[in-house]
Structures are given as C-alpha cells and as structure tokens.
Amino acid sequence: MELREGQVAVVTGAASGIGLAMARRFAAQGLKVVLADVEEGALHKAADELVAEGATLLARTVDVSDRDSVLALADAAYDAFGAVHVLCNNAGVGSGAEGRMWEHEPNDWAWAFAVNVWGVFHGIQAFVPRMIASGEPGHVVNTSSGDGGIAPLPTASVYAVTKAAVVTMTESLYAHLKAENAPVGASVLFPGPHMLRTGLWESHRNRPERYAKERPRRTPYRSLGQWETAMREAGREVEFTPVEEVAAFVVDGIRAGRFWLLPASDHSDRQILARSRSMLDRSAPDYLENFILD
C-alpha cells in the first residue's frame, strides 16, 4: 500500500511506547493521526508533543475492551477526517497472574483477553467495514508478540495465550479480506527483535475495577528497571530495540504489503524451527523444558 500525505492512521495504545512511535512516524510521513489510549493524561501529553511537531491529529480516550468505546472512536475518526486508511490495533496489557496456571485468578485472564484479544476484534469490527466500503487502499496492523505469537512463554502464560490468539485472528482476517477482494491488507506485528522499553510492565496501573484481583499479590509488581537490574546482577546483559525502529519497520512493511512484520532474529528463527520440528515429529515440546518456573 502506498502511504500518502493526507491519509489517516488510527493507533490504539498511542500514548506511549510502540503506539506513540508509530503515530509519530505516520505523522512524519504526512498522515493525519488518531491517537487512542485509556490513559487520559499520557494521551494528552503525547498529543501536545505531536502537535508541536506539526502533526494533524485527533486524540480520544478509549478503553479498547469496551466495544462501545471503540465504536465511538471510529465515529469520531470518520467525523473528523472522513476516512481511515491505516488501523493499528496496538493496545495491550500484561496480566499480573502468579503461580501455576491452575492457580491463576479468572480476572487475570478476563482482563488480558478483554484488551489484547477483544480489543483487536473490536477495532476490526468498528473500522474494517468502513475501510472496505470506501474502496480505497487500506491496511490493518495487529500487534502480537514473539512471546506467544511465535512460541509459548510459560513464565507469562496468560499474555502469551492472548498474543497467540492475535496471530490466528490476523491470519483469519487476511483470508476474509482476500475472499472479498478488498483493497485492504493485514499484517501481524512482532515488535523487536530485542526487548522494548514500553509501559507494558506497568500496565496494572490502568486495570479497571471490574477486572480487579481477588486476592493480594504474593510478590510486588516488578518494573522494567527492576527486572533489568536483576538481569545484570545475574550476569545477563539485555538488549533493547528502540521503539522508533519498530515504527519504521511497520511503515516499511505496510508499503511492501508484508503479512509477517517479523524482524530478522536468530532467536526467533530458532523458536520457530524448534516448534515446527516438534509438531512435525509429533513429539513433546522439549523447547519448553528449559524455562525456570518459580
């Protein structure tokens, strides 16, 4: 898809991290941007920054787990700009689940699925029919993760399951768009190839009361900085991919019409091969046995 000045891009989870980087990149390409985020203060700060950089935008406080909130976002975007050409379903959260899967609180699963899976579905239903009806080229990017989208991450199983669901949802969306001969493409994004400095580690700050934990955590939430310090103390250096590189990768991928927005990585390639070999051999997933599940 050709990206042209004056087109419109909608980005959820746009107040920080990958979402803000994508919005900034689209704006730099001359697109109008619609910023959506559940965190009102951070959203307005991000919007002020982009306006100061010359962006034309609309900012809306949106809870993607709420269908009506996403439908209202679509109405606002079309009322403001008359069209949407790029949709990035990027909002996501961790879960805060502790212990073994059979010990997890149902609300940990309910909240993660409400945002990471239902949020993507709500975005598709709110925007894609209008994008198809316009007859103009368009593109949908759904943010997954290598942690689940490529191979399971048992240490964050709830999050991993939701991100695996995003991959299958995007594959199905792609097939449906092709069946309709729609001028709208679809991609699934695996941010990386290394760790990212995003607000996902502190996503519990925006956890709604309706998905509140039923019992106190056994251990405090750990920030990204605390985790990074612990890794260094254990003798492990952690590499980070700048979110700006992810945003540039997305723009290039949309232009090229790529489905798999998967950066080159020996680590990811090994995961893909190990999982594929296990399935083809009908063998136990030995690649999961090295995880330390304390």
Rank of each mutant, 00 (worst) to 15 (best):
L173G: 06
A27S: 15
R130W: 04
I150Y: 07
W102H: 14
I124G: 00
L224Q: 13
P106C: 06
W227T: 11
R100Q: 10
A14H: 02
V11I: 15
Q226W: 04
R60P: 00
V38D: 00
W118M: 13
V86F: 13
L173R: 07
G94P: 00
R210I: 15
I150Q: 05
G6T: 05
G148I: 05
Y159Q: 12
G30R: 02
A77E: 02
N116G: 06
A175Y: 13
L288K: 04
G6R: 05
D63I: 00
E2Y: 01
R60N: 01
K163N: 11
F291S: 06
I124D: 03
G92Y: 08
S203G: 10
S69D: 14
E244I: 03
P263H: 07
V158P: 04
R217N: 14
F81E: 02
V141A: 07
G6M: 05
Y221C: 05
G235Y: 12
A160I: 05
V33C: 07
S65N: 04
T198N: 09
T162G: 06
K213T: 11
P193L: 08
A42P: 02
A256W: 07
A248Y: 00
A126I: 06
H139K: 07
K163P: 08
A36K: 02
Y211V: 07
F291P: 03
A212Q: 14
E239H: 11
L261I: 12
G225K: 06
V115A: 06
A83M: 10
G99K: 07
E180H: 12
A47F: 01
W260E: 15
I292P: 01
E202N: 14
R25V: 01
V64H: 00
D48T: 10
E289I: 01
S157V: 12
A156R: 12
A256S: 13
W102C: 10
V115Q: 02
M279A: 14
V184S: 03
R222L: 13
A42G: 08
S134T: 09
L280M: 14
A175F: 13
H204E: 14
V158D: 03
S95F: 06
E40W: 02
